[in-house]
């Protein structure tokens, strides 16, 4: 796996898209910290940017990269390598490079301006969310051989988790506003990795004091150490399961 990883990294680290992504994240992070007088406000700005761009870039970049890698995958598989080794190497390469981009772009300013729990939380969650969306991208590429369809699936996945899911939740919330559904709502947020990351970061910022009754309930759960642990476990499962399904499919795939 390590040797495949080396090939992927040697190629991907010279990729221009990745460079632009790193610079963009860097510019946004530095700007949001330097332009706001209060670094907590800066965190909030950064959170909103990260929660939209990181999943989008991760899922799109990985999908396109895997499709472009297709013919070379055949050549790698004509070498004495197991299919799982090759797939794992490719996954490790793509996710490592995206993690590195996130760390250089957003991580360094975070560590400079927010050397506290919230800062570390955002760093860890940004990396985990990147990984989740790389996994989802790998799964998307296994659904179709057609690149444009695969990219379409990837965009739909992002659209669903970043926007539609919250719309659906709001809809349910309005319909059932007479009932005590806060508990159920908390469980539902485990179905969306982006929401999990967002809640977790919000609760570690000062603004969480203004979230009202529901916010207090969320704080009780997600603010506790069990809640934090559960969130991280859930995000790890979100990385693991889509990748495992894609690996199973890849082992049986006709290339």
């Amino acid at each position: 796996m390590y040797k495949v990883l080396r090939i992927v990294l040697a190629d991907i680290l010279k990729n221009r898209v990745l460079l632009v992504y790193t610079l963009l994240l860097g510019a946004l992070a530095w700007a949001s910290f330097l332009l706001e007088d209060n670094s907590s406000k800066g965190m909030l700005t950064l959170l909103n940017i990260i929660i939209l761009t990181v999943p989008l870039v991760s899922v799109l970049f990985s999908t396109i990269y895997v499709y472009n890698f297709n013919e070379f995958l055949e050549l790698l598989l004509s070498q004495p390598l197991k299919r799982s080794t090759v797939w794992l190497g490719l996954y490790a390469g793509v996710s490592l490079s995206l993690m590195l981009s996130f760390f250089i772009g957003a991580g360094i300013p975070l560590l400079i301006f927010q050397l506290n729990t919230a800062g570390f939380m955002m760093l860890a969650l940004g990396i985990l969310v990147s990984l989740v969306f790389v996994s989802l991208a790998f799964l998307a590429t296994m659904f179709t051989r057609d690149k444009s369809k695969g990219v379409g699936i990837a965009v739909m996945l992002w659209l669903f988790y970043a926007l539609l899911f919250d719309g659906l939740i709001l809809f349910i919330l309005f319909q059932l506003s007479d009932y005590p559904i806060e508990g159920a709502l908390m469980m539902i947020s485990f179905l969306n990795p982006i929401d999990l990351a967002r809640i977790m970061i919000l609760l570690h910022l000062d603004v969480s004091a203004m979230l009202g009754y529901t916010g207090a309930l969320f704080f009780d759960f997600f603010g506790s150490s069990t809640g934090i642990l559960l969130t991280f476990i859930a995000l790890c499962i979100w990385c693991w399961i889509p990748f495992q399904i894609s690996l199973r499919k890849f082992k049986k795939e006709n290339l």
Partner: peptide
């Protein structure tokens, strides 16, 4: 997969990582 160490394959269309 081990038998493949004794095979050399030249594909019809080779595409390699571009960078």
């Amino acid at each position: 997969h081990l038998y493949r160490s004794r095979i050399g394959y030249m594909p019809q269309i080779g595409r390699y990582p571009s960078n």
